[in-house]
Nucleic acid binder design. Structure first.
Lengths: 337, 337
DNA sequence: ACTAATTGCTAAATCGGTTTAGCAATGGAG
DNA sequence: CTCCATTGCTAAACCGATTTAGCAATTAGT
């Protein structure tokens, strides 16, 4: 049961490689190969479990039927779910997805893009660190098909599928206001990510819209590296400086987690003392006490749209498509509702 | 800035493809190519950003420098973390990891294995559905390098890295006993997975060891498809039948989650009414009230060991390696401690 | 009966590398 | 001056497919 090549089949059946290849690629009729011959080839191939060597095929066709996916971190549930969806969706169109995590490291991201290009992938989906403009520009200049997801470079014209971050936070603030909260704080991340800035924008917009004051202590930022520790500081500012907040919006799910721990340590009760809404969710956010109110990102839609756009771009050279998806919202007890 | 091939370099520098290839693969000295010539080639290659075509290289070398990873579900945090670790570790040895989710579907798993073999991967790491003996046997017969992780086929002699499931549950029961609980229930999954059976074994062993009775209502099984619903039934049996349980061990993290919801619905308090220990963890298990006591699986070690074994197997044809890793344990409030 | 069209298939180039056997030129030893 | 070693490099086969131009044999058309 050794590996069998097209050559082997051709010799065995006393035909040429060309004929065999044509038939096995379904071009037998088009090339007017006799039905009988076609059957013979197909049967032999099936019987001996013929499998085309993808290297040879790729080399000669210049296509790999693979698309690359680069995300910051596969063990972040948000990206894992996107990855999972993209894989499923891409498979339906016959593509294999190759994915890798950049660990939020631009150099590594660059390296990964290069590795994937070396492997002759046909297209790329990237949730970029957003510190990799040069590489993205290069892809664009190469006219290589790609789609940015979750994060994009506003200054580069590319395909992208992102989420309406500002809108998501607005709905979070709206909900707190609806519950009668007026001194609403916001905890965010020190970050260059557009998405993070937009969330802050959303907070400020929403507060303005409701005519609520934004005290200087209301907006807190912690560093991505040591947010666990800094969160205690941040919470201290929010709940001690006068006026104390009666509601907090956290900019990411893990900030919410850290924030809750911090609130708990101080003996503050949610939502009685402070109502909480989280941007983005975590697996157990409906399990915790109180269950967490969340802005929900349309994970499946991000994946589906990204794949669709990529396939379009790969096939015809479509115009660039830029999508901003609306967030969803789940009200649970943490917001005081 | 077009794509440049070895051919191009050779022509430009009036050398042969062979020389260029040799030099760029670091075999210049060995083949006694003049330093000067080597420099010329390397410089030209760097300057024009030469990148070898991996298809061509793979075709001619018969190696792809890729390893495949097949897991049930990338959006399950347990597997995501393993995948992440494996990717990092494999990269250090110059391998790219291609991964795919089987969705617990044996047919799909088989398909994935085939696809990966077609793509000429050099080795494979599989967390199998355990309903795919034929395929695994086939790999073995082909003498293809692979390692099973998390789940293995006891009747097939293969490399594997699994966890001491029974031992993990024993430590869970031990902890509950230490907290003075004596009527300990166990909620598991209807499943053919060895890992799941072993956990049940562990429960029974531990109860026996402590001389505790296992009432018929103490062991509950729910189906993987509708465990959320059936959990209510299961919990009802555990807490209503006499004698009522005063402690429960859940066989997986998501069973724990569902169980907690169910207990909450009935107004039962953890750990006052029922102490709880979870086999395996979830992201927010330290956030919930009460924080969850967990059996911790050595995720990183699974990944590291699997890669090591795979690399060994790929290089020299080592003897089969079979590893059973010990679990860890985190005590938190849910067990009454 | 002669040309034209159709049928059925193949030869050979190509993709971009790797690798082995060996050639030509130079230097040194005897 | 001849012979052998060494240096520096190359020709050509090979990996396993795809694809195009076109040949030979048969059938159809007039």
């Amino acid at each position: 049961m050794r590996k069998i090549s097209i050559q082997d089949i051709a010799e065995e059946l006393k035909l040429s490689k060309a004929t065999v290849s044509l038939v096995l690629n379904g071009r037998g009729d088009e090339k007017r190969i006799r039905k009988e011959t076609q059957e013979k080839i197909k049967n032999y191939a099936k019987l001996h479990n013929y499998r085309p060597n993808q290297f040879a095929r790729g080399l000669s066709r210049g296509k790999s039927e693979m698309v690359g996916l680069i995300i910051p971190n596969i063990s972040d549930n948000f990206y894992a779910r996107i990855a999972s969806r993209i894989e499923q969706k891409a498979r339906l169109s016959g593509y294999t997805v190759v994915y890798s995590s950049s660990g939020e490291n631009p150099d590594r991201e660059k390296e990964l893009i290069q590795t994937m290009l070396d492997r002759q992938i046909d297209g790329l989906i990237i949730a970029s660190t957003q510190k990799n403009q040069e590489e993205i520009k290069r892809l664009k200049k190469m006219n290589f098909p790609f789609v940015l997801i979750d994060r994009h470079y506003p200054e580069i014209e590319t395909n992208f599928v992102i989420v309406d971050n500002a809108g998501g936070v607005v709905s979070a603030v709206d909900q707190l206001v609806k519950q009668g909260r007026t001194r609403i704080g916001y905890v965010s991340l020190q970050s260059d990510l557009e998405a993070i800035h937009q969330r802050t924008e959303g907070y400020l917009q929403a507060m303005k819209k409701h005519g609520l004051p934004v005290e200087s202590s209301f907006v807190q930022e912690v560093s991505p590296e040591s947010y666990e520790v800094e969160m205690n500081q941040a919470i201290a500012h929010l709940v001690e400086a006068e006026p104390k907040v009666d509601g907090i919006v956290f900019a990411t799910h893990y900030l919410t987690a850290a924030g809750l721990r911090s609130l708990k340590k101080r003996g503050l009760s949610v939502p009685a003392d402070v109502a909480v809404v989280s941007y983005d969710q975590m697996n157990a956010f409906d399990l915790i006490e109180p269950p967490m109110t969340c802005v929900i990102q349309p994970v499946d839609e991000i994946g589906d749209r990204a794949v669709n756009i990529l396939l379009d771009t790969m096939r015809k050279n479509e115009t660039t498509k830029q999508l901003v998806l609306k967030t969803d919202f789940v009200v649970r007890k943490s917001c005081g509702g």
